[in-house]
Design a protein around this nucleic acid. Structure first.
Lengths: 237, 237, 237, 237
DNA sequence: GATGAATGAGCATTCATTCAT
DNA sequence: TATGAATGAATGCTCATTCAT
């Protein structure tokens, strides 16, 4: 039966071992004995903390996602503009991946496989995660910073997919470029793409260094269709 | 070794059955006997056409990807503007997913898991796929339509990630909205985000219906910000 | 159903292929498909001539043994002394092995394994084979050439074992010495050992008790029975 | 990998069960499950002690041969005459067979099949075994007790073959005569045949041509080498 | 007769899980 | 709590045999 109180360090050691092993071999290929060896405990010990191999993955998933969710929830104060908060979101996501690539890989890959394996488990926390993004976008839409002809859900999902893919490709590649930079670049594209007024759509001030935005202003007039009517009809998920 | 002559229909039946079964249960959970039953053949028959369960997945992956790659390669004539060709790319991707959701699911999920299972197999064809996207973006950058301060590779990867995620979420949801619409919406965001001149970034003319394209021409001034200073430094993968 | 009339050449090709394949891989490791390929026929064709894989071995065994038995039966005229006929027996056996080492190997090895696999099949013909040897020895005993205190059956069996072992070791070794010479050498030992006239040949001093190497000759008294009658009581098989 | 510490009794129980099962059904026909049942353990338990079915046979072979080799190595003191030591060798071999007929059967049969299955494994220990015999014979040749015109290797191999065959026939027959007696009888023949002093023991009259038993002495001219020295040229293996 | 694609029973092996110590 | 030997159900794969052509 899963214990959460006693010898929490052992439980953690098992979880961390599981992260490493699952990242390296994949959940199905990894053996419980592999995790036990990596954790430095006996096979049976794992079953003192987790009911099954699957429960181990579930525990790993839940606790990791909780940490990520916590990290994401304390995004810079509510007062900050949505673009700024999105930047923080992206950067934290990148930072998390860079700091714990193995965990990121497990989450990234298993989140897919989970569609079959533990839909119910993942759904809840992933839903929350997604809703954080959706909320940020909707905030921007409310304040008028972001186009309102977009489905926040669609954009959020796409953002997550893009972010996740960059993250995965970073994790998979041995050569290590700056994931954070790529994420900023990605956000820049998204922000421009979502910008209600063309000139606003910049990473103004967000990117390090002096960036001028001068050409931005001239653009504004346009997006008639956004004015005239939602070019891309909001889509539902 | 796989036979391609004998009874091609049987080989296909097995592949199709594998798609259904793998989509439903996942590769590792699925039993070879499940595929056999679904295909209406004996267990052993599968081994007349594929060397192993893994080879079955590989065959499935390769042939599907080849079809997708073929589909993507014959994108509208070279003369069309990159934005238009990207739209076709997105639409075809969406259409493929809508038409063969089970196959899409297998590819989408396994492409991740493949990181462990069949990296070498997937890499080649997925690389080609990615390069199609990269090529389209680079074309746009060359013609001046797209910003040149972006890493085509990063954007392509992000695009794929976003597209893939939308596709997956569509596949996973039982309710079926119009994936193609979401993809258009997604492309709209990307095109605006990548647009060299803000005003040019439109889906104008791309979406069905009366859309004027006139403003497009004015845009070309080109990549001021890129000139003024690298807003988001190009990142590498 | 086994056919013995039509296309006898095909049946033979299969048998010969079986000899090669069984010799090379062993009966259990060899696949029916291996034999078919070696024979240049389709898998199914084998079953037109033999009821089963086991029947194939049986056929192979029976026909080979029949040839060997025929060869052994026409040993030099009845008039020849047993020793001479034994020599012919040994030489023919050696010759057969040298000429058809693969077949010899199959017979030699399978005759053992056959203890489990086809006791009944082998028994009959092997029994005949053994009886030829026994007959030769008994003839010698009758004529007084050979000691009568030996069990012809025991000696025959031992002879066969020795012959078989030499044959096997010859077959197994890549270097090819003259098997026939070894067999003659072997026979020489046996003939001396069986010789009725050799009064010197005794088991003198072999029985437990105080024995000295030098006293060997003098000791005889200690083994009165050896002196008085058949030293080694005839043993039964 | 095989464990030797944990529960040595269990490992032994498995080995003993394997002996019984392999003896009864033969290695290839026997199922791992049969051995498990016979040993009173679960199927999987076998794999805690042996890597594979084949490794089980190997372990069985090695440990048994080691026991036999040990038994044979401690033959009566070095001071005893070779004939005496050979007797002990034969008797121990017979005793071993009589005491552990099933093991003897497995070794006897598998030693043949091993030509294909585990040549490398068997070779080493069987080689040692053979060399014990060869050594005994060469000792006798050195002391002048045995003829020096014989290849010790050939004779040893023949001895083993004869011994093995007697052993096998004893094992195979349900009726149980005294194997030890047969072996003594066999040794008697060999000793006489190898005896240096037995002037009567000749291959006289064995060569083709008109030979009469009585004319033995006259014939010699035809086989000059037989007269002058080593009658049968020493043969090599 | 000949073929060889198809069959499916059968088995070695694995590994998540248990439980006596 | 912790252990790790033992368990045995589960499964990928093989291959002797069949039979439609």
């Amino acid at each position: 039966m899963a214990q959460r109180n006693k010898a929490p360090d052992k439980r953690d050691r098992i979880l961390q071992a599981a992260v490493r092993v699952f990242a390296q071999k994949g959940f199905y290929v990894a053996r419980v004995a592999d995790v036990a060896r990596e954790a430095g405990v006996a096979d049976g010990t794992i079953y003192l903390y987790f009911e099954s191999k699957e429960a181990l993955l579930q525990g790993l998933f839940e606790e990791s996602m909780d940490r990520i969710l916590d990290m994401m929830r304390e995004l810079g104060g509510e007062g900050l503009p949505p673009a700024e908060r999105l930047l923080q979101f992206f950067e934290r996501y990148a930072q998390f991946t860079e700091e714990e690539p193995e965990l990121a890989e497990v989450l990234t890959v298993q989140l897919r496989e989970s569609g079959k394996l533990m839909k119910q488990i993942a759904t809840k926390r992933f839903g929350e995660f997604l809703h954080l993004l959706i909320g940020l976008i909707e905030d921007g839409q409310r304040t008028g910073a972001f186009r309102q002809d977009l489905s926040a859900r669609t954009v959020a999902r796409a953002m997550f997919g893009a972010l996740d893919e960059l993250s995965l490709s970073w994790v998979m590649s041995d050569a290590r470029w700056r994931l954070k930079d790529s994420c900023r670049e990605l956000l820049d594209v998204f922000l421009r793409g979502m910008s209600a007024s063309a000139e606003a759509a910049r990473l103004e001030g967000l990117t390090p260094g002096p960036v001028s935005d001068t050409s931005a202003r001239t653009v504004r007039a346009e997006r008639p269709q956004s004015a005239q009517g939602p070019t891309p009809a909001k889509t539902e998920h």
